[in-house]
Design a protein around this nucleic acid. Structure first.
Length: 497
RNA sequence: GCCGCGUUCGUCUAGGGGUCUAGGACGCCGCCCUUUCACGGCGGUAACACGGGUUCAAAUCCCGUACGCGGUACCA
């Protein structure tokens, strides 16, 4: 329906299966998704697997499952055929070859026979302090082995002899390439600074530059939304569109996600700071996908008002590419965790309980769905992650094995053991074992002894939980149940004296 | 080195010439909730990189410098 409307945008997320889905990649996918949904357009997933030397076998499966987990459903892509497939570049080789041939015929590209060794030699020869990275361009190409320097007959002979070659874009210096970027405005590059980019590698595979332009055109992509690392190669793409005589899609280059330590978020400078770089790790750490997406959406974009907590559906309603910022953004786990807390609040306790099961069982706790759900409900907004039940809140499942030292020093007095024992003796029977019943028993005891309620409340909390923090005392006692409470009170009285 | 992009509290940001003694959120700190608390309420800390212009008026426009980031591959 939307794809039959020519006015509807078509966007794509085009990851390379050279690794698992990076968190920055997820954000790029998210912005593409939001843009497509916001404008009633089509969101396409395209696998850019043209680098067979860096190909990772299960990367595509990881990308697919990460997208599925986060709810970024694509309309067309591998396993979801559309009219412009296939959606894996390795399955589109013939298309690139045809187009590369066309460029060569038109004189916009040429054949180059230089071996990797020869290229190194050229760079070594030409490299100076002032120019450490010599380019293969108009200033150097005539000194190299290509169809321009050798002539058509000579190069045809080489091709016939089976000499490997690449196809390079012929970039004419002396002009400017100008385009409007939706997030940065007008951007200009001089063709003097653009090299004769390789379009087809000697293994016959296209490079990203060729494949991306050919596919975006053939797939009817109207808006290219990608990371800023692509900005410097955009002039090459523009030159290609021009050479093919095609209209270029609108461009939007997203600010990069930076590590708090500086630089792109990578395994090296992020993992060590506790910031996972792969999407799957966020799932494993117990994040809500909606919270991750919410956080990612706000990394480089904001709706312009003070509201920050949004579901994916709500983000679709307010997203606009114009409000995307242009400066690099630092990843902040603390804020992500806050978003997670916000999102977890709206998840049903039964569901959270179910999700905590693996962690509880790994901790040796026998899973009890209804009891766990009651604990979750009691903890409500205090619970940051389902698996925290097995750590921070473990005492809801196992008797405390120790008592927080500082808490004992501060709250456990000479009379505590006696008070706790007395309370254990007076624990109401099953019918009276509720919030009010417990409170009156405790307060009566305080009054009887002529002491403040806190004198009993604090030791009791310590006795049953081992710590000094948690939900309201009476509510938690009710959840723990009479037998557990009595047992823990008596035990604490013995241990702490 | 060269090319490009960027620069408002520690972080994410609002701001698009006067309403800015710069607002919000996270974090942090304090107080309150006389039962706790990582919850909640209240309050606080903290920023327009620097230098020149333009203008009656600049965080907002222009130039330069510094700094950061990206690119500079037969990787994407």
């Amino acid at each position: 329906m939307p794809d039959s409307d020519t006015a509807a945008p078509r966007v794509r997320f085009a990851p390379s299966p050279t690794g698992y889905l990076h968190i920055g990649g997820l954000r790029t996918a998210l912005y593409n998704f939001l843009f497509a949904r916001r404008h009633g357009g089509v969101f396409i997933l395209r696998i850019e697997d043209t680098d067979r030397s860096r190909f990772v076998d299960d990367a595509e499966a990881d990308i697919l499952s990460a997208l599925d987990w986060s709810g970024l459903a694509f309309d067309e892509g591998p396993g979801k055929p559309g009219r412009v497939g296939p959606y894996r570049q390795s399955e589109r080789r013939a298309l690139y070859a045809e187009h590369a041939e066309q460029l060569v015929r038109d004189g916009a590209a040429y054949l180059a026979f230089d071996t990797p060794g020869e290229l190194d030699l050229m760079r070594d020869r030409l490299a100076t302090e002032a120019n450490p990275n010599p380019r293969y361009d108009a200033t150097t190409r005539l000194a190299m082995r290509n169809s321009l320097s050798l002539g058509d007959e000579a190069s045809a002979r080489l091709v016939n002899d089976g000499v490997p070659y690449v196809v390079r874009l012929r970039v004419d210096p002396g002009s400017d390439v100008r385009f409007t970027d939706s997030v940065r405005g007008e951007v200009t590059f001089s063709t003097d600074a653009v090299d004769d980019q390789v379009l087809v590698k000697s293994d016959g595979m296209p490079t990203y530059h060729l494949a991306n332009v050919v596919d975006d055109h053939l797939m009817g992509i109207t808006h290219v939304i990608r990371g800023e690392e692509w900005l410097p190669s955009t002039p090459k793409h523009m030159l290609l569109y021009r050479a093919f005589g095609w209209e270029a899609p609108a461009m939007a280059h997203l600010p990069l996600i930076l590590s708090p330590a500086g630089g792109k978020l990578s395994k090296r400078n992020a993992d060590t700071l506790g910031i996972p770089v792969f999407t799957s790790a966020y799932r494993e750490e117990g994040y809500e996908s909606s919270a991750l997406l919410n956080y990612l959406a706000f990394l480089g974009w904001n709706p312009g008002d003070d509201r920050e907590v949004y579901t994916l559906e709500e983000l679709v309603q307010v997203f606009s590419i114009e409000r995307v910022g242009s400066a690099g953004v630092h990843f902040d786990v603390a804020k992500l965790q806050w978003f997670n807390l916000q999102h977890l609040r709206s998840v049903d306790p039964t569901e959270i309980a179910a999700r905590s099961r693996p962690a509880l069982e790994a901790a040796g706790i026998t899973f009890d769905a209804s009891y766990t759900a009651r604990v979750v409900a009691l903890l409500s907004e205090r619970l940051a992650f389902p698996q925290d039940l097995a750590t921070t809140w473990r005492w809801f499942f196992d008797d405390p094995v120790s008592y927080e030292e500082q808490g004992v020093r501060k709250r456990w007095k000479e009379d505590s053991a006696g008070l706790v024992r007395t309370l254990a003796d007076r624990m109401p029977s099953d019918e009276g074992f509720d919030h009010d019943g417990l409170e009156s028993v405790l307060r009566d005891l305080a009054e009887e002894r002529g002491i403040g309620a806190g004198r009993i409340i604090h030791p009791v909390r310590l006795a049953v939980s081992g710590v000094t923090t948690g939900p309201g005392l009476f509510e938690l006692l009710v959840v723990l149940g009479r037998d557990t409470c009595v047992r823990r009170l008596v035990r604490a009285a013995e241990c702490l004296g």
